[in-house]
Structures are given as C-alpha cells and as structure tokens.
Amino acid sequence: MLWLLALNSRPLLGSGGVAREVWGLYRHWYGVLADGGFPVHDPLWQYPPGAGPVLLSPGLLPGLTYFRAFVVLALAADALITAALLRAGTAPARSLRGAAYWICGLPLLLHLPLARYDVQVTALAVLALLALTRSTRACGALAALGALVKVWPVLVLLGVPKGRAARSAWLWAAATGAAALTALSLGFTHPLDFLRNQGGRGVQIESLGGTLLSLASHAGWPGTVRYRYGAMEFTGPYVSLVADASLALTAAGLGLLLLWRARARHRTPATPYDAALSAVLLFTVTSRVISPQYLIWLLGLSAVCLTSRHTSQRPVAALVAAASALSSVIYPVCYDQVMAGTWPGTALLLLRNALLLTAAAVSYGRLWRATRPAPRLPAPQRPALTAAAS
C-alpha cells in the first residue's frame, strides 16, 4: 500500500487524486482548526466535531510533513486494529480468521486507506466491539468517541445485550459524548456547522440511487454530473426525489434493526458483532453517498465477526471483500468512466452495488435467523399399553 501511494501520480492510480485529499484538503483544514475554529461556511466540511482532533493529530509528529505524519498515523491505526484482532483471535472459542481477513482485505482498496482517516475511525469501532466482553463502559465510551468523528460507530451499540449491559453501554456513551462535545465546544468555534452542509447533499454517483440515475441517463434522462459537497453528484430532474427515497429507505432500515432487537430471543457470543455489521451495511446501501472509503468500515466490522466461531456473517464477509476489490476498479482506476456515465462505468457500479445490496440482505437475514429461538419439537409420547400387556 505504501508502494502504491508512492506511485499515486500514475494514471491507473488516480493521477494524484487519492493523495490530494490529505495534502490539499486536510492540510487546509488543519490550518483552520489550528486557529481554534471549525471550517465555517465551507461546503466540503461535513464531519462531526470529533474529526477536528483527528485532522490536527499529524501536528503531534514534529519533523514530518503533514502528509507523511498523516500516513504514519494511519499505519499506526492499522497496526492497532491488527493487534486487537490477533489478541481477540487467540481467546477460547475464537479464531484468527478475523486478523487474517483484515490484513489481506485492506490492501484490496489499494492505497486509499492511507489517504483517508477512516482507518482511525474504524479502529475506535473495532476496539469498542472487542471491549464489550470485558467492559460495557469502555465499549460505550469508545463508540461515542467514534460517533463524534464519523457518526456510524454508534451503530456498534445496537447488539449490546438487553438489560444492565445495554444501560451501562448507552449511559457511558452518552456521558462520554457529552463530555467530549463540551470540550470541543470550549476549544473550537462553530462545532456544529457541519449539519448545515449535510442537509444540502444530493445523490452521489456511486450510491445505489446514483446507479439508477446512471442507468436512466442511458434511457434519455437529461441529468448531469457536478462536483458538489466534496463528491461527484447528479443534478437534474428527479434527483431530489431519489435523495428523499434514500432517506426514507434509511429510516426503513432503522425500523428493521429495531424490529430485530425487539424480536431477538436467542443470542450467541457473536451477536453484537453480527448486528454491528448488519446495521452499517443497511445504512451504507441506503445512503445518498457511498464513498470507496466506506468499505474500510465494512472490512473492519467483518474482521471482528470472523474472530468468533459463532458468527453468522461468513458469507457476508466474502461479499464485502469482493465489493472492496471492485471498488478499487471503480475508484481510482476507472473513475473517469464512472463520471462520464459510460456503459462500462455504469456496469461496474451496478455490479459493486449489487454485491453490497446482496451483502446487506444476507447479513440481516442471517442475523434474524441466528437470534430466533429454535422451534420446539413435540415431546416423544410413550406407546400405549395394549390390553394383553396390561
């Protein structure tokens, strides 16, 4: 991955676009954050306030440029995840498949993970899940810190066992989140300005809705692709309708997850892990945006599932790995085809998103079946005594 990052300027590796996010955009935000404020009225800033300390952290490594320090910290987060998975895999009834999956799966995304801060966020979610068996307090606190950086880690709390464990995890998540948000509000101005930009987002070309619009363009739909809010988005008739439908599907996904939690009766040691993966998959496929770095989240959660021999998500992990490999073909290798909406670009999007949609459906179905009690078999009846025997 480091070698590919060194070759970042090659056309097949994005002509420098992958690394530009760090030394261009992140470095710019670093200067704004260092002055004590979040980027105000910047449509590209769409992240919760916890992202601020993450983007400032390369400044803790003196003697390195911002870009090199950022990559070092991304590698450190990668090593932390690997170490946590290895430790979890050596426990009784556990497996080292999770660590192997992460080590072999992350490079499927080429050098992208080293040029985004999603590995750091994934580390918080992975540690929160793996801490659950030892401390619900640590689980809740780590999930809250992750949510302050990129929202989705709060979903790892969905599978926490009901009762005292759930109350403890959610209480510590709320307390940690409130304390961290208060500290960020005291240290920086405009910590919640990102909410304004989130509301204006449209349909990114890589999302499921974007795939439908890309297909529609081949049937005569007159929409165009523009760079908006830090992503390539569709503009034109019915785009707002597709965006609203995506939000409705996200709400429906949340409803399905709450229904599962209310109906679940049987639990295994892997249930919290399986529920976290299923939840993030549902929210990913229904989102208006599916960026390639989202696959880092899914790879990390799949790896956690595979540390348990009781997981129901092995087929899902295989689908996520296949989707990750295909995502690298979409971006950066063939992204010009995707942006132009050519048939090859549309076909790549259709196949990748079909894999993710299948993974979400299989994940939820297997989670549902794994947590339903086994049907009771009728008790065997003794044969009736015959009159002669009596």
Score class of each variant (00 low, 15 high):
residue 19 A to F: 05
residue 301 L to P: 01
residue 290 I to W: 04
residue 355 L to R: 11
residue 260 W to K: 01
residue 157 L to H: 02
residue 181 L to Q: 11
residue 235 T to H: 13
residue 105 G to E: 10
residue 353 N to R: 07
residue 310 H to M: 04
residue 57 S to T: 12
residue 285 V to P: 00
residue 249 L to N: 00
residue 22 V to C: 08
residue 222 P to I: 02
residue 174 A to H: 03
residue 52 G to M: 10
residue 381 Q to I: 13
residue 38 F to L: 15
residue 74 A to S: 15
residue 138 A to C: 15
residue 51 A to R: 02
residue 111 H to F: 04
residue 255 G to R: 03
residue 38 F to D: 04
residue 97 R to M: 10
residue 183 A to L: 07
residue 28 H to R: 12
residue 82 T to S: 11
residue 30 Y to L: 15
residue 37 G to D: 08
residue 275 A to E: 08
residue 317 A to N: 07
residue 154 V to W: 04
residue 378 P to W: 15
residue 243 A to P: 08
residue 263 R to D: 09
residue 19 A to I: 07
residue 349 L to Y: 05
residue 169 A to K: 01
residue 128 A to R: 06
residue 364 Y to Q: 09
residue 245 A to N: 06
residue 49 P to M: 09
residue 306 L to E: 00
residue 159 G to Q: 08
residue 279 A to V: 00
residue 135 S to Y: 01
residue 193 D to Q: 15
residue 117 Y to K: 08
residue 136 T to D: 06
residue 126 V to I: 13
residue 254 L to D: 00
residue 243 A to Y: 00
residue 120 Q to V: 15
residue 286 T to N: 02
residue 146 G to N: 07
residue 147 A to C: 03
residue 290 I to L: 14
residue 157 L to D: 09
residue 98 G to V: 05
residue 182 T to D: 08
residue 109 L to M: 05
residue 113 P to W: 02
residue 212 L to A: 15
residue 145 L to K: 08
residue 270 A to T: 04
residue 235 T to W: 06
residue 197 N to T: 12
residue 316 V to F: 05
residue 43 P to F: 11
residue 115 A to P: 04
residue 27 R to K: 10
residue 258 L to V: 12
residue 49 P to E: 11
residue 274 D to W: 06
residue 316 V to T: 14
residue 134 R to F: 08
residue 337 Q to P: 07
residue 351 L to A: 15
residue 279 A to L: 06
residue 69 A to L: 02
residue 178 A to V: 07
residue 103 I to A: 15
residue 231 A to W: 03
residue 257 L to C: 00
residue 176 T to P: 04
residue 114 L to M: 00
residue 78 D to Q: 08
residue 41 H to I: 10
residue 12 L to C: 14
residue 326 L to N: 05
residue 20 R to H: 14
residue 136 T to H: 04
residue 302 S to T: 07
residue 335 Y to W: 10
residue 311 T to R: 04
residue 267 R to H: 01
residue 235 T to N: 12
residue 79 A to C: 01
residue 97 R to W: 08
residue 12 L to R: 14
residue 357 L to Q: 08
